[in-house]
Amino acid sequence: MASFYDEIAANKRNSYLLIFFVFFLSLAVLYAFSYLFFYGSDLGLALSIILAAAYISITYFYSDKIVLSLSGAREAQKGEFPYLVNVVEGLCIAAGIPVPKIYVVDDPALNAFATGISPQKASIAFTTGLLSAMNRSELEGVAAHEISHIKNYDSRLSTLVVVMVGLIAIVSDLGLRQMFWGRRNSDGRGGSGGGIAILVSLLIVVIAPILAQAVRLALSRQREYLADATGAQLTRYPEGLASALEKIKKTGSVVQHASETTAPLYFANPISVGQLFATHPPIDERIKRLREM
């Protein structure tokens, strides 16, 4: 038990480190922007600090809603999905956490994810494809894995990563385009003094998404094994999850609405990418570990 508590503490610590890191990263990016547009005035700096603080608070409090709307999820009513609601409620009793809001994503792929900044304010989502393909013990296995993410505070960390890091990537991408296309047309108005500043700005705008990507990849894989293990502890039946993973391997987990940004949240890789950038450990390895429990 102790090791799980250690993991939870580590997750909470990493969440705060991430917030701290992202605050300064977004500050740097915004300041770089202000150099590009205001040529480094104090107004630009002040504006950057205010925007970065606003950005952090908005993403912290609305991250789960952003994620849910990005993935096109709708709330599951008990009348429509009594089976799913019962499974999730049962597992939450086993985990000793409040029942999260339950969502479904209309997509034939087999996948699921959990999001939210605390077990009290969590949401859990399943694709309709998953619901129709899995039997009860397999669905329980998948739901237990997601509930473990909530219980272990993985979903706080990964949700924050998704929203904060994802938006930074988008913003710096825009910045980069702006520089290459926007500035070229303004016929060298910047003069000599702005040369170094522009270079620094350029550097930050280029480096930020790479850093962000590194953080994201560092987070995800070990958490998946841990959630598999905690999930098996909840259902007392690792085979359910193992056989669910096998079905996913055969059918595929590529979700239409998933992007590179929301990928770390999911149960299995929702996008088809190479091993190098995979956010999830290989499915065969996960099955093997579960069968050895």
């Binding site: 009594p82 089976y83 019962n86 499974v87 409620e89 049962g90 597992l91 009793i93 086993a94 007392r236």
Partner: peptide, 17 residues
């Protein structure tokens, strides 16, 4: 029927917890 099997499961999980 679904409700009852759901409850039976929840009883089991509550005992486990």
């Amino acid at each position: 029927q679904e409700e009852l099997s759901g409850i039976e499961n929840k009883v089991a999980y509550a005992r486990q917890f």
